[in-house]
């Protein structure tokens, strides 16, 4: 899967948790979940779980640790998909 396609699906996943609509609409690789999208940190756990379900992968804590912005999250998903 291309990183663009993953990013599109990730955008749908994060949508219910965002608190900054303007920054969500112009979401880019650099978008930070907490600082830009103003996602509550407890909902980062939900995003990790939604990503696991959506892509049928399991994310260990070492990888979860990096998932604070769009680019790093797409990279983790891509790595997990290619290891399947």
């Amino acid at each position: 899967m291309t990183s663009e396609a993953i990013q599109e699906r990730l955008k749908t996943i994060v949508k219910p948790y965002i608190n900054n609509q303007e920054n969500f609409e112009k979401l880019s690789k650099e978008s930070d979940f907490i600082n830009d999208l103003e996602i509550n940190s407890a909902n980062l756990v939900d995003i990790v779980l939604d990503v696991e379900d959506e892509f049928d992968i399991r994310i260990e804590n070492d990888d979860m640790e990096k998932m604070t912005n769009v680019e790093a999250t797409v990279e983790v998903i891509q790595k997990k998909l290619s290891a399947k």
């Binding site: 509550n40 407890a42 756990v45 939900d46 779980l49």
Partner: peptide, 22 residues
């Protein structure tokens, strides 16, 4: 700080695998 009313609306800690991540 956690607002307990808001947390109830936003998070389900009993969701499968939720507690294990934290």
């Amino acid at each position: 700080i956690v607002d307990l009313v808001k947390a109830k609306q936003e998070s389900n800690i009993f969701r499968p695998r939720y507690l294990e991540k934290v």
